[in-house]
Write a protein that binds this DNA or RNA. Sequence first.
DNA 1: AGAATAACCAAGTAATTTAGTCAGGAAATA
DNA 2: TATTTCCTGACTAAATTACTTGGTTATTCT
Lengths: 158, 158
Amino acid sequence: MRLSTKGRYAVTAMLDLAIHHEEGAITLADISEAQGISLSYLEQLFARLRKNGLVAGIRGPGGGYRLSRPPAEISIADVIVAIGEGVDVTLCGGKTDCQDGERCLTHELWQQLGSRIHEFLESVTLASFLERKNVNLVVRRQQRRQLVSIPRLQKTVA
Amino acid sequence: MRLSTKGRYAVTAMLDLAIHHEEGAITLADISEAQGISLSYLEQLFARLRKNGLVAGIRGPGGGYRLSRPPAEISIADVIVAIGEGVDVTLCGGKTDCQDGERCLTHELWQQLGSRIHEFLESVTLASFLERKNVNLVVRRQQRRQLVSIPRLQKTVA
DNA sequence: AGAATAACCAAGTAATTTAGTCAGGAAATA
DNA sequence: TATTTCCTGACTAAATTACTTGGTTATTCT
Ligand code: FES
Ligand code: FES
């Protein structure tokens, strides 16, 4: 029962974009530096975010990435799902066929768990999460373009 | 966001034990055959279940494993936690120190998610789950010692 | 036009984790 | 004492995750 750092990176990066949503595009190079993630790795993440319509890339000087929807309309679930870190915990992947083509004994259990997880992550939007953390936000707003950061990967936690 | 097959095996095996709770001990060899898991692998799982006081091993001929508490007092969360498949989704593991010793921006998000997951899994006990599936149970009770099975591992789902 | 900038893309490699095996005890019963 | 069954640790194989390398294309600035 673990969440990959990929998911964590994506969410943090999206929060960065949300914080600076009014200021135009932000380059991956900036995020890369702030978070200590390699540029190429970020590019891979953003490729998926873009393909799922969460962000828009703007090329050339002055370009970068920006949210393609307002922060209030992007949930954490959207982000997690977009980067391929599914929320489905069943073995069968929703096909109810993992036991010789039949639904296994525990299918419903995992399906319900998956639903709960999705419900929760869907209930939190980029905007609502930042709202709750607004003390920090004020500080950050005073220093424009200050990006949040998460630590260099130590270990993916169980 | 995935659950390992280890967790799934453990839960299914525990349900087996719960179903035959009144009939005395069940050997790992039986479960091994029913589920198509190697005996040694099962032994590893049960070692942890035993260390966490969920099952009791009985050696010698006629021995096997049995639940050390009634099925109504063992939750799915107990099982998942016992085999080391934690429910904690934070990077820091609850220490709030993953960003240079400080709590990172997203800590609360993952912590809350972890709590929700745990809450849900705690709310389902072996007994309550089997209760819901009691149609199948009746059938199984008629054929004593019929073990449930889950399929051979195909792929760990994302 | 040309150079700088930054998104875009496709493969490959390295590290970690998971899943599973092997070989050998040690306790209880018959 | 022979058998059954639990119990233990170390070891291997497979899969996944994290990350690197080396490019191409679009846009803007000079
Ligand atoms: S998990 Fe869906 S059928 Fe087994
Ligand atoms: S996840 Fe706990 S401090 Fe970052």
